[in-house]
């Protein structure tokens, strides 16, 4: 702070509090809607005071789901967790080894491979959706965890991030390892992996959220309720049927549960989250 300006300080806090309140408002209303009965939700305008039905609504959604999608939330949360973990860990694993190869070896086609990985940055799943679906269907991976996760595992950003980081590891370490007779894999496990832990943690937070929040891809590769993730489960709950048939109190309970894991990850691992966001954009 450069100088004292009490009025400006007041305005500062007022604006920030207003921002926080407006941003939190939709989630607050969602929370309230998840604690009252279906009839109370339909009474326009809905109350803004939480009701007493929190436990029974969450239990109902957790065990039986809601509306047109009969998949219980526990199944969908499990599917989301599996896909988010497989996508996050898979991305980190394959990017780590490919970046290691590209930085620590000289081999024919090295730069060609690097550019091949780079170009994938330019092909988001949204723009090549139909042919990708066709390939996954030809490999008979529809309605499976492999189909949900594998196509999303390749990651140019993670490969870049690790490459950047490896380039900052002092050459002396590799030299010392070679003089001591350590092979490349020994060097990888004993030096590179332990040094990369911070980058891995940062990437994990970002990729876990990315995996948990996937929408378009699970929407088209899953037709059986057993494989729905919670994000598309919510969409199925409100799709089809008339306005009145949507069980909003259960949908909102599901939405609260769907938001919880990634929000907890962001808040508890905030330092790594910020680092991950900033690093992946370099």
């Amino acid at each position: 702070m450069v100088e004292r300006r009490p009025l400006l300080d007041f305005i500062t806090h007022a604006v920030l509090l207003l921002g926080v309140a407006v941003i939190a408002f939709p989630v607050y209303v969602t929370f309230v809607a998840s604690t009252i009965t279906a009839e109370e939700v339909l009474a326009a305008p809905m109350t803004l005071v939480p009701g007493p039905h929190l436990l029974e609504n969450y239990k109902e959604a957790w065990l039986h789901g809601a509306g047109n999608s009969a998949a219980p939330v526990r199944t969908m949360m499990f599917n989301s967790l599996v896909s988010a973990l497989v996508i996050a860990i898979g991305k980190i694993a394959i990017s780590l080894v490919s970046a290691f190869a590209i930085v620590y070896f000289r081999f024919p086609l090295r730069m060609f491979f690097f550019w091949m990985i780079f170009v994938t940055l330019m092909l988001p799943v949204e723009v090549r959706i139909l042919p990708t679906y066709k390939i996954v269907s030809d490999l008979s991976m529809l309605d499976s965890y492999a189909g949900l996760t594998l196509p999303l595992i390749a990651s140019a950003t993670a490969t870049f991030l690790f490459r950047q980081f490896f380039l900052t590891i002092p050459d002396e370490l590799a030299e010392a390892a070679r003089i001591d007779g350590a092979g490349p894999m020994r060097f990888f496990w004993d030096v590179v992996v332990p040094m990369s832990k911070t980058s891995m943690a940062a990437l994990f937070v970002i990729q876990f959220i990315y995996g948990w929040n996937q929408y378009l891809w699970p929407l088209i590769v899953t037709t059986q309720e057993d494989y729905y993730t919670v994000v598309i489960g919510i969409k199925r709950m409100i799709a089809g049927g008339g306005e009145a048939s949507v069980e909003w109190h259960l949908v909102m309970a599901t939405a609260m549960m769907a938001m919880l894991p990634p929000a907890v990850v962001v808040i508890l691992m905030q330092k790594w989250f910020v680092k991950g966001l900033v690093d992946t954009e370099k």
Partner: peptide, 19 residues
């Protein structure tokens, strides 16, 4: 208090505002 909306899935955000 300002960064957590990043964690909310786009589809869930859409459903909240739709509501």
């Amino acid at each position: 208090l300002l960064i957590w909306p990043y964690a909310v899935a786009h589809a869930v955000a859409a459903v909240l505002w739709l509501f």
